[in-house]
Each structure stands twice: as C-alpha cells, then as structure tokens.
Write a protein that binds this DNA or RNA. Structure first.
Lengths: 153, 153
DNA sequence: ACTGTTTATGCATAATATTGCGATGCGCAG
DNA sequence: CTGCGCATCGCAATATTATGCATAAACAGT
C-alpha cells in the first residue's frame, strides 16, 4: 500500500463523512480539486476497500462511511493476532472451533467480526475458545483454509 | 401503499437481513421463488424506500438494512428488548446468529431462555452475538420469523 | 544496477442500478 | 356504474459502478 493511496483514501473518508456525495464521479471532482487526479475505477476500488456504503434515499443516493472504517486505523488485525494466539482448530459442518492461548479468544473473535466476512455468520468467544458459525459447508472450508494460512505465518 | 407492496417490502427486509444478497437481480430470484414476481426496477424503488444500503466488500457487494437506534430503556421481555438491542440476524440450517448492540447479547439470551420455547434447544451469548440452536430447520424458520417480527416493532 | 514479483492504475466494457414515461388498476365520489 | 385521481409497475433508455486486462510504478533479492 503506497503512501499516496493511503492519503487518498483518508481524503475520501473525510470527504464522504463530511459532505453528501452522490456518485463516484462527484467524489472524483472533489478529489481533483484537491490534487488527486484519479479515475472513477480507482474510486470504485477505494470505496470497496473502505467499505463505504451507498444508501439510497428519497432525495438521491448518498455515501456513508461506517464507524468501522473511520476508526479502524490502528486496530489489531487477524493476520497479526493469529500467529501469536492460535493453538489449534477443529470443525464440523458449518461450525469451526478455534482454540487459542488463554484469554486469546476475545480479541480474535473481535478481529474476525471486524472483517465482516460474509462467509461467517457470527462468532462467540469464551476464554480460550472461539466458535465460528459459517454460512455453509463451503464457506466453512474457505474460512478454515484462510485461518490456517494466517496462523502459519 | 397497497398491502401487496407492504408485504413484498417486508419479505425484502427479511431476505436482506438474513442472507448475503449481492444484486437486485439476485434478490428478485429469491422473491420470485417466494411468489413475488416483480421486476428489478421495482426492487430498486423498494430498496430506496427501505433505505437498504449497498456495501461493497472484498468478496463482493452486499446489502444491509439500516440499524435502528437505541431509544429508551427496555423492559426485560423479549418484545421489549429486541427492538432496542437487535442489530441483525442470520441463520444456517438449525442455527441462528443474532447480532445485538454492545453488551446486548446476554440480556437477550436470558429473555429467550426465559420463554422456554420448545423450538429452541439452547442459547449461547457472547458480547454482542447470540447463538440459538434450534431443534430443526422448521423450528429455526419459526424462530427467525418471530424474532424479526418482534425486532421490527 | 538488473531482473523477477507484487501492487496500483487507467482504459474499455460489462454488470448493475435508477429513472422517465406510459399503461394498468384500485378506491372512491358522484 | 362511470370517470377521476393517484399509486404502482413494467419497459426501455440512461446513469452509475465494477472488473478484465495491459501497463506502469514500486519493491525485493542478488
């Protein structure tokens, strides 16, 4: 991630949470006026990265940055946490049980929640165990694969 | 506002807050399968009315129904608690995952337990997530319906 | 510095959503 | 019953957003 990209995305977040922007093209104009000359394609991708929601209203469309994206700057990531806290993992059907070091379950569950992965319906954390409920068997498969990959770092 | 329209929009809300829907066309298919044969144009208008947000994620776009605000203090009944604390709900097979506002999972789980609903084998509550284990798929269906109805008050 | 690899971006185009407009149908007053 | 007014909806055109592909820019290793 380049500095330019990060800065641009910061600017996007600020603009979006500050004004009523109704299209990516409109946002583009504002960015151009501020020195960032990029195309709509790039904005589409930025907005995906930032999870900026597009909500239609009676008076036109409007974008909003959820609290999540606003304050997510320094949050612990799954990739950072898992290698530290992961112990082992088992699964059945659409459930996954992740064992962690003592007191590791809560932060890991939060990190997973924060990702908003649509494969995962939800998480429940105890002291050293996280239960993940996945959407389908296939979803569970993907999630297991990813968790193991991350944990192995 | 005709009854048909209202019912269709109810169905849309349930579908959207229940599954990961990625396009209006996809939603249309689901509605057709349930007896609502309308065009995508109509869905665009319905979704505007309902203020259903479209949020892009790394794995594709997804629609989400807006959150409701925490108002006054709720009573300790499910009917009183849900509208206050309910965030959204998803399910798979005989499991239901209910998301709540922070610290809302525990009281809701207790309220559910207190009802002694035979459809529900048990509940597990984390910080903001409740897992409900239902007896069967049919039981889960009933429970989902009821929860959504209560939450929508 | 050289070269293979990843990351970022533009361009063109596909996919998806919105909207103007006319058609249809419903509720109701006369 | 008939006609009016209004809400709804489909169709087709338009607008907006997402993406495959090629290329450039940034990196990493030697």
């Amino acid at each position: 991630m380049t500095a330019a990209k990060r800065e641009r995305q910061d600017a996007i977040l600020e603009l979006v949470s500050t004004r009523a922007i109704g299209s990516q093209e409109e946002l583009r104009q504002l960015l151009v006026a501020r020195g960032w000359d990029v195309t709509q394609s790039t904005l589409s991708r930025d907005m995906r990265d930032l999870r900026i929601a597009r909500v239609p209203t009676p008076t036109g469309v409007r974008y909003t940055a959820g609290e999540r994206s606003l304050g997510e700057e320094g949050r612990a990531t799954l990739a950072g946490l898992l290698p530290q806290l992961f112990q082992n993992l088992e699964y059945t059907r659409e459930l996954i049980v992740v064992r962690t070091h003592t007191a590791g379950a809560q932060p890991i569950a939060e990190a997973i929640d924060a990702e908003g992965n649509p494969d995962i319906l939800g998480t429940i954390a105890g002291e050293n165990t996280v239960l993940l409920i996945c959407r389908t068997d296939a979803a569970r498969e993907r999630v297991v694969k990813r968790l193991l990959a991350l944990a192995a770092r």
